[in-house]
Structures are given as C-alpha cells and as structure tokens.
C-alpha cells in the first residue's frame, strides 16, 4: 500500500529517529554524538524543567475544565434545540475553527495588550486607571487555549447528549429528582463517553500547545511545546529536545489508552 510506504518513510522513520537520538548526546557544535545514555531523560528532572511541565499540565487541565464548564450548557442547549437550529448552531461553533489559528490568537493579543481594547473599554467606563497587564501571562494563555479548543469540547459533548434519550431524563425528573440530581445522577453518567472524548480532545493539543503560549505567554509562561522548540532551534540540543518530545508523546498516548479503556467499559 503506497500510503503505508509514505507514512513509514515520512512519519514513522522520523519518529523512530527522535527516539534513537533521545539516547544520544549533544555534539560540541550542536550536532549529535552517537553514544548511548539515559542522561537526557535524567536531565529532564531538573527543577527548571519540572516547573515547565507542571505549568503545561496545569494550564492544559485548567483549559479542559473551563472548556467543559462553558461547553456543557452550550452542547446541551444545542442538542435539545429543534433539528433545524441544531445545524445552524453547530455551524456557528465550527466556523471559528476554520479560521486561521494564528489570526484567532492574534485577536486576543490585540484585545489583551496593555493599551488594548480590553483596557480601553474598561478605562473609558472608569473601571481602571492604570494599564492592566493581562497579555504575556498564564491568564492570557488560558484564555487563548480555551478560545482555540472550545469547539473540540462542544462537538463530542453534543454528540453524546443528542443520543441521550429524552424520556430517560424525564423519568428521573418524574421520580422526584431535582435539576441538579437529574444532572449528576442521570445526564452526566450517561454522557460520560462524550465528556471524556471532549476532555481528551482539548487536553491533548493544550498540553502540547506551541503558538498560544508563544504569542500570549511570553518568556515567563513557557510550556513544553516552547521548551522543545527552544531546545531544537535555539540551544540546538537535539538529543535533549528529543527526550522531552518523547516524554510528551508518551503522556498523550497514555491518555488515549485510558480513554479507550473507559469507553469500552461504558459501552457494555
């Protein structure tokens, strides 16, 4: 199959190369010295880097939670709207996703920078007097990530809620469950596969994000994606960059494996 050849040469071979080089050492002038050691993996435990992994995980987790909180009511509303409107709403959710990611991130730079729109609006109504610095902070990165990946949360949630039998929800209500109990005891358990799928679809790109922290985060909010780029293109320590890449990929694949395990359990 030609596709397998193409993918083998231009994807699996390069990935394998990353794995191999992650055990090598950096050459004196940036190249690769072919040795075998675990030094790169051990170096990853440096507190400097640990802070970056922790920030990546925390920001990705926060993005996931915020997307879930924003996305669930939206997905629920769409799934229970008349069929015609469902199509319109879904279209509206997808359109921003088709708009260039850099452009969408730039929009937030424009809004959040110290003399940006957000500040201008707030100061013109007298809420703030001195410039507020939101851009180049973790908050800005969080906003950018949520903005970028919200559609990834809404779509699988919508699919799960749409499949949820209306009469089952009514049955819970009829059996004395209040709004919250209906949600916790019936809606949430029955839409769990959608929730998990949405969380993964948001968490995976968030944890490996590059553009958002690069543009909105500045030097203080580096994430793993930026660290890899930094090691490759600035420090030119390819073996160490490879080790970090591999650890990131392993994390993502473990997340996916967990998802499939949960999904098959729910499907029984």
């Amino acid at each position: 199959m030609p596709a397998l050849v193409w993918m083998g040469v231009f994807l699996f071979l390069p990935l394998l190369l990353v794995l191999v080089i992650s055990f090598a050492a950096r050459g004196t002038y940036g190249g690769v010295e072919w040795t075998f050691s675990l030094a790169n993996y051990l170096n990853m435990a440096d507190p400097l880097y640990l802070r970056i992994y922790a920030r990546s995980l925390a920001l990705a987790a926060a993005t996931t939670v915020v997307c879930l909180l924003l996305g669930f009511p939206l997905a629920y509303y769409i799934a229970r709207a008349p069929a015609r409107w469902q199509a319109v709403w879904l279209m509206l959710i997808i359109i921003p996703f088709w708009t260039n990611f850099l452009v969408r991130t730039y929009a937030w730079m424009f809004i959040l920078r110290s003399e940006g729109l957000f500040h201008t609006v707030l100061s013109s109504v007298g809420l703030v007097t001195s410039p507020i610095e939101i851009l180049y902070s973790d908050t800005a990165v969080l906003i950018g990530l949520v903005y970028g990946y919200l559609p990834f949360m809404v779509l699988p949630l919508y699919a799960a809620i749409e499949r949820l039998d209306r009469s089952v929800v009514e049955a819970a209500w009829d059996l004395y469950a209040s709004g919250w109990s209906v949600f916790w005891r019936v809606v949430l358990p029955l839409t769990k596969p959608g929730v998990i799928a949405g969380c993964l679809l948001v968490f995976i790109p968030s944890v490996g994000a590059f553009i958002t922290p690069d543009l909105l985060g500045g030097a203080r909010s580096m994430m793993v994606g930026n660290l890899i780029q930094h090691e490759y293109l600035v420090v030119r320590d390819w073996p160490f960059g490879s080790a970090i890449s591999f650890a990131l990929m392993a994390l993502v694949l473990v997340g996916i494996a967990v998802y499939f395990k949960v999904e098959t359990k729910v499907a029984v």
Binding site: D165, S167, A171, W173, D174, L175, Y176, S178, V186, L190
Partner: peptide, 15 residues
Amino acid sequence: NLRPVNLVFQSYALF
C-alpha cells in the same frame, strides 16, 4: 419532581 405522580414511559426510559 414535586408531583405525587409517576409515569411508566412508553419506551420505559429505564436508566
């Protein structure tokens, strides 16, 4: 949820 009635649904709507 506050009415003293319970419905047997046509589709049964079992959880």
